[in-house]
């Protein structure tokens, strides 16, 4: 009987503790939600930019045949691409770019444009522009892109 008020008090304390913890949990989850909403707002800008890009490229353009590419698609080449991938993408003969760039690196064609630029101490942007020219000249000379 003596214990009853004590027990009731500890139960009240427990409940208070419990409510406080639920409060903390809700605050934490609320903070996560706010962070996510901020993330979504930033992504929304990206999303709008993507939508404009898609509109500009037109619906038909992105469902067209993906490979091999034509001279119009040279702008899609990026420094992270390997020569092997570029050869495959544009249906180039394996040694075409090697000859054009006088590449002696034994890893060719398993070599990225970026690594190649770094290995010859050239600005990757300059290498990209040379690559652009080499691709344009090959593809305009051989529009059907038949490998030799």
């Amino acid at each position: 009987m003596k214990d009853l008020p004590h027990r009731a008090m500890s139960e009240t304390d427990n409940n208070k503790n419990h409510d406080r913890l639920i409060g903390y949990a809700i605050i934490t989850l609320g903070a996560i939600l706010v962070a996510l909403i901020i993330f979504l707002v930033f992504n929304y800008r990206g999303f709008r930019r993507s939508a404009v890009n898609i509109r500009e490229s037109s619906l038909f353009a992105f469902i067209h045949n993906h490979s091999p590419q034509t001279a119009a698609d040279v702008s899609y080449v990026r420094p992270w691409m390997t020569f092997d991938y570029i050869n495959k993408l544009f249906n180039l003969p394996t040694n075409y770019l090697q000859t054009q760039f006088m590449i002696t690196n034994s890893h060719y064609p398993q070599l990225t444009v970026y690594s190649y630029a770094r290995s010859i101490h050239e600005d990757p942007a300059r290498t990209m522009s040379r690559l652009d020219q080499a691709l344009q000249s090959y593809l305009s000379a051989a529009p059907s892109s038949t490998p030799q």
Partner: peptide, 10 residues
Amino acid sequence: VGDYWNNFSG
């Protein structure tokens, strides 16, 4: 989407 994959990553 092929080459346009980058437009969709966002």
